[in-house]
Design a protein around this nucleic acid. Structure first.
Lengths: 158, 158
DNA sequence: TTTTACGTACAGTTTAAACTGTACGAATCA
DNA sequence: TGATTCGTACAGTTTAAACTGTACGTAAAA
């Protein structure tokens, strides 16, 4: 039996898996999808009810999503409760969040590796590691290049 | 005090974080890095000793890494124990593993969404979801395009 | 002002993942 | 052949994450 509810559930279930690919937890992914599929902004209580999770869980989930700029708070006069809505330009939002995460990480890491490089040089036994370390640095540079490339590509896709 | 051991530990710790970005668990990432930094292939017992994990853990970890084609088994005559080594072309290995994961997922997902689309059409209340579903499909198409683009780019980087 | 309703901090609980030790089959060595 | 040593399956344990309920501060409503 294929009720309306079941279709929506399938849709939520499937789409959440894609969201998880961007590094979100299953719970957060599901929350986002729920919010995205809802035709109007939701309160914490509504989300709690819909997802079957406690209000506290929903609250922390919303905080996570907000930190990633995937969800926004919406104001509606006369409504006392906080209202939240999913950002709707899926591709740009997720790609940017994702690329920023990668590029930010790579920058940090290149710094760390460069720092370690100096210490390795000072060591007599360092030669063995030295080549590997050089490879790692190259590795990071290639990743950086790749993701900068994507960033440019995605801007063309607007 | 900056002993040789501590430098290697730092290196393992830092580099593992990058490996984790590719979707590997902290434990698997650490195992890979340990193997990568070692100048010669290692046995399960050696890895167990070096990582401080049980032999069973190392065993399942190696299986995971092998499934991802990030580690290879090495044969050396006269040595009875299984020997493993990390694949050394980091960028190609990880990028391909990564891109395949993404592209494979997107293909599956497009299929699922197309299938759900038919059911939604049949529903009278389906209009509300319909637009969202269309957006999701577009979303997946854009991701697909992006990752195919990267795949081409990375081939140029050889 | 008092009362009510909301969001969130916090401590405790549940659930799932990671890990370990034992045990056993297969392969090597004596 | 029997003894040893390896890899791995499996059951039980530990550890970390996710989640819940209570309790409290704040702000709106009466």
């Amino acid at each position: 039996m294929t009720s309306e509810q079941t279709i929506t559930d399938n849709l939520i279930h499937e789409f959440s898996k894609t969201i998880e690919m961007f590094g979100l937890s299953p719970a957060d992914a599901r929350l986002f999808t729920t919010l995205y599929l809802n035709h109007r902004p939701m309160t914490l209580d509504e989300m709690s009810q819909t997802t079957g999770k406690s209000k506290t869980s929903v609250n922390t989930g919303i905080r996570n999503l907000s930190d990633l700029n995937l969800v926004k708070q919406v104001w509606k006069k006369g409504v006392r409760k906080d209202l939240y809505a999913a950002e709707d330009d899926l591709f740009n939002r997720f790609m940017h969040t994702y690329l920023d995460k990668w590029i930010g990480h790579i920058n940090l890491q290149k710094r760390s590796l460069d720092h370690l490089k100096k210490h390795v040089y000072k060591r007599p036994q360092g030669e063995l590691i030295e080549e590997k370390l050089a490879n790692m640095i190259t590795f990071h540079s290639l990743i950086e290049k790749t993701f900068h490339c994507i960033k440019e590509e995605t801007d063309h896709m607007l």
